[in-house]
Design a protein around this nucleic acid. Structure first.
Ligand SMILES: [Mn+2]
Ligand SMILES: [Mn+2]
Ligand SMILES: [Zn+2]
Ligand SMILES: [Zn+2]
Lengths: 141, 141
DNA sequence: ACAACCATTGAGAATGAGTCTCAATGTCAG
DNA sequence: CTGACATTGAGACTCATTCTCAATGGTTGT
């Protein structure tokens, strides 16, 4: 089942309408670079003569996040950054404060930490954010 | 060496002036609740008849973070939240999305994760942010 | 103590990401 | 095909944070 199908099912399940704007946004999102902000997405839409308002783009990103096709981040002081989510691609981010490079990594111990937290406090974790900031190998020293 | 002394030394070292506004903000910050936002801090200052402009409060918080006396967070979609930092009090946060409760916790494995990242990619970590969102024991189920 | 230099302050304007409004338009179940 | 109602878009709006710049004040050398 591909992204469009998943999105359409999600829309149907929630009694939301299957509009061309929503589908177009999804198509263009999938063709974006790994981490992108809403401005770049809007620029891309414009450059492809798709006229979709800023409001609709924001509204649609909300839906894409909610249905699990896209994840939303906040890196540093900047605004939101999105990235399409693929199955079993769970990772955290290192951001170089000098050159802006982003390194994605996965360390299974993060789940151990979360597991222990749940047991210790009886909480239920729905989401998390974990970012590291520093100098990449090219920028340090 | 107490907070004020540290701050004064920091100011001197950076050729910044030791103003009453800066010292006052530090005093009031230290008397705030654990996690506070700038609005509450400004309210507190007002209620104590200390007239310090919003701009100066923001500017001073910047300095306090830079000199290591205060840490700055972003919880969810909200604005900045600050908290005074005490030596060897390194912790992460769990935030209940239902009731707003904040649980602070420390799991030493977070350092293992960071250590392994440094070794694997040759990066230098200067800072990080790690927050979990979910339901606390009173709100889940 | 004083002068002179220049950093700091404050009031309010500016910024900017994101949200909201509401009339016009589009979707889709029946 | 139609009616009911969800969605869209242009631009107004919000609100946290930053900026501006004239007035004020801290610091250093004398
Ligand atoms: Mn990523
Ligand atoms: Mn804390
Ligand atoms: Zn770098
Ligand atoms: Zn709760």
């Amino acid at each position: 089942m591909n992204y469009s199908q998943i999105f359409c099912e999600y829309l149907k399940k929630h009694d939301l309408k299957n509009t061309t704007e929503r589908l177009t946004v999804l198509q263009v999102v999938l063709a974006m670079d790994k981490h992108f902000d809403v401005e770049s997405l809007i620029d891309r839409l414009k450059s492809q003569q798709k006229k979709i308002s800023r409001a609709t783009v924001y509204r649609t990103m909300e839906l894409l996040v909610d249905c699990g096709l896209v994840t939303k981040h906040r890196f540093g002081e900047n605004g939101r950054v999105y990235e399409p989510k693929s199955e079993r691609d769970n990772h955290d981010h290192f951001l170089c404060v000098s050159c802006g490079k982003i390194i994605e990594f996965y360390d299974p111990e993060i789940e151990g930490i979360h597991q222990r937290l749940c047991e210790r406090f009886g909480v239920e974790i729905l989401d998390y954010s974990h970012q590291l900031y520093g100098k990449c190998n090219k920028c340090s020293g």
